[in-house]
Simulated scan of single mutants.
Amino acid sequence: MLSTGALRAHLLAARLAGSVATSREASLRSYRLFAAGDPRALLGLTPERDWDEGDLLRLMARACGVRADPAHVSGEDTIDPERTVAALDAFAERLRAVAGARAPVLFGTGHPHRLLEFYATLAEALSAAGCVVLTPAQGAALVMATRFGVRTHRIDYVRGVALVREPGVRSSGGATGAHTHSPLPVRIVLGALAEAGGPLPELVVGDHGWVCGAGQLGFEAIGPADTDDPAVFVAEAEGKVSVAVPLDDGVHADAYRPLAGYVLGRAGLSGRKEWL
């Protein structure tokens, strides 16, 4: 398991925190869209109050460590690695509790090309600890708006992690799913569980619409979020998401591998695997 100091160094070296690649322009655009109630930025969340751009910037400065100066409108954005480490510790505690209760869990990602391995590692560890990793609605179709127009996608699972695949893409066992912010997949998955009368997840782990959509429906949810994902941090502030981990969600997939090892070590679930 990484020490806290080594984790902090890795976050900075991989640009998961510190000066990140997500641009200030992208972050501010997301704050504007969220304040305007644009579904692309809400990620399935219905905020309890109005949040204007200034409110969001102040929240993100507190939660992520982005620069609070509204005059800073271009260039790189920042994430405070201390906030990331603290959030990963809280994330690990939720996994520890779920593992101790052997409770059912659900994993889902809108960032399969980046975060699939991170989630799959956690899912496998929780399964080994006796948790049921839920995989409902396999193959279910859903209609989603994309930049190419309205398309029919389908829900698939890779190593216990839900994702959506684009039309015509075969299941390869790899991270060939679509990048999406939509809450529709988690709504379909949770609806299928409720209809079947089977166990519902006591914890949902994911990003984008998976975490916000689950939290909005009253399920405990935790997950990572970037500086241009204000909805996840608003959901945390309003009590609909238990833990939002500030980090850049768009770096190379290998960069998240040490984070999985750190989290599992803190949760007492590291087993015999080596992560570095």
Rank of each mutant, 00 (worst) to 15 (best):
M1H: 13
M1K: 13
L2D: 10
S3Y: 02
G5Q: 14
A6N: 08
A6R: 14
L7Q: 06
L7R: 03
R8Q: 11
H10C: 09
R15S: 15
L16C: 09
L16V: 11
T22N: 06
S27T: 09
R29Y: 04
L33V: 01
G37I: 06
G37C: 08
D38Q: 12
A41W: 00
A41Y: 01
L42M: 12
L42F: 06
P47S: 13
A61F: 03
A71M: 13
V73G: 00
I79Y: 00
I79G: 03
V85F: 12
L88Y: 06
A90M: 07
R94F: 06
L95A: 09
L95M: 02
R96T: 09
G100M: 14
A103T: 07
V105C: 08
F107W: 10
G108A: 06
G108W: 01
T109D: 01
G110A: 01
L115N: 01
L126C: 05
L126M: 14
S127Y: 07
S127P: 05
G130N: 02
C131G: 12
V133W: 00
V133P: 03
P136V: 04
G139Q: 01
G139S: 01
A140K: 01
V143A: 13
V143T: 14
T146C: 07
R147Y: 10
F148V: 11
G149K: 08
R151D: 08
T152F: 10
R154P: 07
R154M: 04
I155V: 07
D156R: 12
D156P: 07
Y157S: 09
R159C: 09
V161S: 01
V161E: 10
A162N: 11
A162S: 15
V164A: 10
E166L: 13
P167C: 10
P167S: 09
P167N: 04
V169N: 09
R170D: 15
A175D: 12
A178I: 03
H179S: 15
H181P: 00
S182M: 09
S182R: 05
V189Q: 09
V189T: 11
E195H: 02
G197S: 04
G197C: 07
P199T: 08
L200I: 00
P201R: 14
E202T: 12
E202L: 14
E202V: 03
G209V: 04
G209T: 05
W210H: 14
W210I: 15
V211H: 03
C212E: 13
Q216F: 09
G218N: 05
G218E: 07
G218Y: 01
P224Q: 07
T227K: 04
P230L: 02
A231S: 09
F233V: 03
V234R: 03
V234H: 03
V234Q: 05
G239Q: 00
V243C: 00
G250I: 14
G250W: 08
H252P: 07
Y256T: 00
R257K: 11
R257Y: 05
P258V: 06
L259H: 00
L259F: 10
L259E: 05
G265P: 06
A267V: 00
L269C: 05
S270A: 15
S270C: 14
R272C: 03
R272P: 05
R272N: 13
E274F: 12
E274T: 15
W275D: 04
W275Y: 15
